[in-house]
Design a protein around this nucleic acid. Structure first.
Lengths: 345, 345
DNA sequence: CCTGGCTACTGAACCGTTAACGTTCGGTGC
DNA sequence: GCACCGAACGTTAACGGTTCAGTAGCCAGG
């Protein structure tokens, strides 16, 4: 029976024909994929764990790029991609336990995410994209520290010393507003932590007291939240000459707010992003471009590469660091001097 | 054992604790999802079949909307969404056969798609979005004919009689260029067929000879292909006063081409789309808005509603028609009169 | 004629879980 | 003190396919 479908060479064409015909007559719909999976120990799909509501992934262009890259890699290998629902707040660990997949790709979850724990307990290979860093687990991501450092140096070279920062959520609990230094350093999102730390280090190196630099956090990652964060920051610190945003989305929001306030970018205010999403490109944003699609592709390949694994564990846990590129657009320029501020350029 | 995990109420807390502890000591990773699926006959996931390469779905905002809606519905029900790779060209029916899912959502495939056949042979419920229409299978979609008729009437009212049409692929085989009427009527994509037919009917009703109306087809569905289609059409028929596009993406391409030619829209040329995607909204495109997200949501709900099914078949196969809305933007206006063309408005 | 080897096919064990069923036992009502 | 009942727990048979050992049948060589 099984042979008739899967090994035409093992039996005579005549018998195969007879078997298949009888099967058809009996209304047999072909081998059951689940039973097959049980026996062969291959589900033919990889799971994608996102910390966000599923629908969010389709809003954020960076997440979309990752998804696209992963889908591409999986398509090549002929396996499906299963979106595992794991919204924040409502912990649904069962979704992780119940997913019939051969491996997981975990995208950008906080250090202490319980879903991640659940994934790691499953006896299947796992690749983490971006964050967090877990010992003995493959990871794909850019060198956030180095990338942010190069961006910071660009701003420093331009002459900015009086900056403000807009960042994404730092913990799983909803919180918005100014972030004291301690919270920055204890953030559960490794990527945000690294970017903030890189900024702090670079600016302290040129004599800026980081504790005076305003950092505003937003839990939701949307253009509107970026705008409101920019507003909050500019209201309290109208003197800043540059807004450094830890994502392009936030930067686009900042641009929106700047335009609402009739601030010239970059003449009155420099704004920078991070990611290099198409929308940012269109706005000619100064940002760090990272190969989002490549991240997904790379993660998929790593997960599916049969040579790399014996049993459940990676042969040799790898951390793949992807190249980033500083992209200088039209949203960054030297700050106005005091005179320029009063008399115009 | 099973009870310890799934029915805490069936045994004493003491025993449960002991069982769980021993399990942990033995390194038992929890019930195997595949074996569970085999036994319970529930995979905890629904498959999404797209006729396009998986990565394409992440490019087309309309497809993305559908995906988002479906993900939303599935998230509510706690089931995953599995993207089934079924790129065009390379037929990979096995991907359909091997997918361990409780049902399929099929999005916009041609009438004669072999993957669709494979899906229908599987003993699981299926919902088709948009196309094709298959007897006894649930379908969710707008009334394309009525929607396109209302758009046509808008153009007719404005005074357009000399139009050109840009449409998406009409068959599975790659083909680009002008489309003779016969090919329009034999298109394997039901939606395109319906939209073209509605246009033809409406314009013939006001005396336009449809066989003189140029229709240009593009296999790929991108802004650039829309632009090249517009170029091809305008080169051959510079006199048209309106370009009707069967999708917003194509219309955005047409806008791009118009701007390249320094044609004023809508003064020199009216351009209309179909779908109502955010990008079109931003361009203030005249279009037909259809609730793409709702399509996905609706399909998911239909598929997962336990009351609607006995065994594999739908109790009462349903065709859900979603409302559309004519959205008049700033890309449509009355055509210039002959004098205006020579002397300006 | 017997044996050895080859091919074509058959049967049974196994994958890990769940759900149904059977057993035991302590408690309650008469 | 006996009969009955329900809760708690142990046992077992599928679920449907794959795989592998084993058998039957055949032909060739000794």
């Amino acid at each position: 029976m099984s042979n008739a479908y899967n090994r035409p060479d093992q039996l005579s064409p005549e018998l195969r024909r007879r078997v298949l015909e009888t099967a058809r007559k009996l209304g047999y719909p072909g081998p059951d994929p689940v039973a097959r999976s049980l026996r062969t120990r291959k589900a033919g799909a990889v799971g994608l764990l996102l910390t966000e509501a599923l629908s969010y992934a389709f809003r954020d262009p960076a997440a979309l790029g990752v998804l696209e890259g992963l889908a591409l890699a999986c398509e090549d290998a002929g396996v499906g991609v299963q979106l595992v629902p794991a919204g924040p707040g409502k912990e649904n660990l069962d979704a992780v336990h119940r997913a019939g997949v051969d491996g997981f790709v975990v995208y950008s979850v906080p250090d202490d995410d319980p879903h991640l724990q659940a994934v790691l307990q499953r006896p299947v290979p796992t690749v983490i994209i971006d964050q967090p860093v877990v010992p003995d687990v493959d990871r794909v991501g850019p060198d956030d520290k180095a990338a942010m450092t190069s961006l910071a140096e660009h701003l420093i070279e331009l002459g900015h010393r009086d900056i403000g920062v807009l960042c994404m959520r730092l913990t799983r609990e909803r919180r918005n507003g100014f972030v004291p230094r301690e919270r920055q350093e204890n953030a559960n999102y490794h990527v945000q932590r690294a970017r903030l730390a890189a900024l702090a280090e670079a600016f302290e190196a040129v004599g800026v007291d980081w504790s005076t630099v305003p950092v505003v956090e937003r839990f939701e990652h949307t253009i509107d939240d970026g705008a409101s964060a920019a507003a909050q920051l500019l209201d309290a610190h109208p003197h800043v000459t540059a807004l450094v945003c830890t994502s392009d989305i936030l930067a686009l929001g900042a641009l929106k707010e700047a335009s609402r306030r009739r601030l010239q970018v970059p003449a009155d205010l420099t704004i920078t992003g991070f990611d290099g999403v198409p929308e940012g490109e269109r706005a000619d944003l100064t940002t760090v471009r990272q190969p989002v699609r490549e991240k997904g592709r790379c993660a998929g390949k790593l997960l599916l590469d049969p040579g790399r694994r014996v049993g459940r564990a990676a042969v040799d846990p790898e951390v793949i660091t992807l190249d980033t590129e500083l992209r200088i657009g039209r949203t960054s320029a030297p700050p106005r001097t005091a005179e320029q501020r009063w008399f115009g350029p």
